[in-house]
């Protein structure tokens, strides 16, 4: 213990206190370029105000009996422990929405990873029309959900184009009002919409895979599939981790699609999402405390799944 506290001020302490040392002290306090604090301050304040504070407030609300009151009014908001959490978890609609996210992720994540990697690999070759293809892949990503939902509603309505093409094979009840198909359809919609962004991520990652690895693989007689399996997939593993985590976050954020595409999570709650239930309980029905508890559970879920996934994908 005592040996660890060797005084650093051995010879230095005999020096007169100079301006340099004072500046040194200031530098330890504020950093070498304290102007950086001023530059970064607006962003730091922003993060504190719309991220850190609301996050804390969400947790606080979830442990209290919280309701909306007129601005300025002081009302008692007693601590209620886990009451909001038990209320949320015993609500069948909440449980259904979490199951729905599960269904969503089981469909969306593998499709997203598979198709974006496949299309990115294809696009990574020297082919004509690459720019056109690249743009056409990310057009859905940059377009508002509300706009593309409108056309999907039209395509998948009961006598829409999809059912017309399928003819006698069309599902009955139709896609959006079918309790088994509604959630998978949302998962397909989101996969389609987000894929372009993930293709861009994979394209960036593919540039980091050394070309020599492909050369030596083909020298060893590896075919296309083998070099995809043994060179590409391990080479883009960090990107895969990121793609999976971002897909999970997208799934946890789901709101516009069930709200508009299946008209409020229908039929009968078969396609609700946790955020939709948060909106209904918290803002429509005035129970922000229960809604906050749902939100906290959701974030814990996202963090746990992301962590497990990171561990699984990065293990060698």
């Amino acid at each position: 213990m005592t040996t660890a506290t060797v005084s650093p001020a051995g010879p230095g302490s005999t020096e007169p206190v100079s301006a340099r040392r004072r500046r040194g002290a200031l530098a330890t306090l504020l950093g070498r370029q304290p102007l950086g604090i001023a530059f970064a301050a607006p962003y730091a304040v922003f993060l504190a105000a719309v991220f850190a504070y609301p996050l804390g407030l969400a947790v606080w609300i979830s442990f209290h009996d919280y309701f909306f009151a007129a601005p300025g009014a002081t009302v008692a908001r007693p601590f209620v422990g886990l009451k909001n959490y038990t209320a949320a978890l015993s609500d069948p609609a909440v449980r259904r929405s979490f199951v729905n996210v599960g269904i969503f992720l089981v469909i969306n994540v593998p499709l997203t990873v598979g198709f974006s990697l496949l299309l990115a690999t294809g696009l990574n070759a020297a082919i004509r029309g690459r720019t056109f293809l690249r743009i056409s892949y990310y057009v859905p990503y940059i377009t508002a959900s509300v706009a593309v939902v409108a056309v999907w509603l039209f395509l998948f309505s009961s006598n829409g184009l999809v059912n017309q093409v399928l003819g006698p094979l069309a599902p009955n009840p139709s896609w959006l009002v079918n309790s088994t198909l509604a959630m998978p359809l949302i998962a397909f919609f989101v996969t389609w919409k987000q894929l372009g962004f993930f293709i861009l991520l994979y394209l960036a990652a593919l540039q980091g895979v050394p070309k020599e690895l492909y050369e030596s693989a083909s020298m060893d007689g590896a075919g296309k599939w083998q070099s995809l399996r043994n060179v590409t997939i391990p080479g883009v593993r960090p990107a895969t981790t990121l793609v999976v985590i971002l897909s999970i976050i997208t799934g946890a954020n789901l709101f516009t699609e069930p709200y508009l595409l299946t008209n409020g999570g229908g039929p009968d709650g078969a396609s609700t999402s946790p955020v939709l239930v948060m909106y209904q309980r918290g803002i429509e029905q005035g129970n922000p405390d229960i809604a906050a508890a749902i939100g906290v559970l959701l974030v814990i879920g996202v963090l746990v799944i992301s962590f497990i996934n990171k561990r699984l994908l990065e293990r060698d």
Partner: peptide
């Protein structure tokens, strides 16, 4: 990595 949607209640 924190879903924005989660913050809608406190932000609201």
């Amino acid at each position: 990595v924190v879903p924005f949607q989660l913050l809608i209640i406190p932000l609201y």
